[in-house]
């Protein structure tokens, strides 16, 4: 087996922190791929090719995980609490948040009837991004030596992030459809 026991942060030589230097991450990702990508072993033995594929796959997974805030938060929860990330089945109990989600969804379903639907959907997406950033805003501090309560709080945030991410994807699908129809 390849020595892939390192955690994703160690793999890229980065400190375990929610705030991540994306430039350094991307640069080291390229360096690592340069050393293990299957293209480097196109003429090697079958065994080396398999290992290269394994290594390259692992590095891709690590990179995808760290560069996405939601995946990064879930991964860090696992590192800190040694548990599986928040499952899709658990849901937030913050009723105010849930009410807001319902309203946002309703607004999204009506958006095509607006005077300038493309402008409206762009504003909608900006608003969702803003909300995503609000939820991730204090995560870096929360993740510094988190107590059990802080971990619970992070879990709650992750659930909200999942909601918002789904909403974002649906809004993007609506935008794509509108562009298809209108442009």
């Amino acid at each position: 087996m390849l020595d892939l026991s390192k955690n994703f942060f160690e793999l890229f030589g980065l400190p375990v922190s929610f705030d991540i230097d994306t430039t350094a991450l991307r640069e080291r990702y390229r360096e690592l791929q340069r050393s293990v990508h299957p293209d480097r072993f196109a003429n090697a033995s079958g065994q080396e090719q398999r290992l290269a594929m394994q290594g390259s796959t692992f590095i891709n997974e690590a990179f995808e995980t760290l560069r996405d805030p939601l995946a990064r938060a879930q991964y860090m929860l696992r590192l800190h609490a040694g548990e599986d990330p928040v499952s899709d089945n658990e849901t937030t109990k913050d009723t105010a948040f849930l009410m807001e989600q319902l309203e946002l969804r309703e607004a999204l379903s009506e958006i095509r009837h607006q005077a300038d639907p493309l402008g409206a959907i762009a504003d909608f997406l900006d608003n969702v991004t803003l909300k995503l950033n609000q939820v991730t805003g204090s995560m870096a501090t929360d993740f510094e030596n988190p107590s059990a309560e802080q971990l619970d709080m992070i879990r709650e945030r992750v659930r909200k992030l999942q909601f918002l991410r789904k909403l974002q994807q649906e809004a993007e699908a609506v935008e794509a459809q509108l562009e298809e129809e209108l442009l």
């Binding site: 020595d3 160690e10 400190p15 350094a24 050393s35 293990v36 290992l51």
Partner: peptide, 22 residues
């Protein structure tokens, strides 16, 4: 072959330590 691949990864990351990053 496994040692080689691991050594490749180490070499790619040589010079990058957490301290250096900080």
């Amino acid at each position: 072959v496994e040692r080689r691949m691991n050594s490749n990864i180490r070499k790619a990351m040589a010079g990058h330590s957490v301290n250096e990053f900080e």
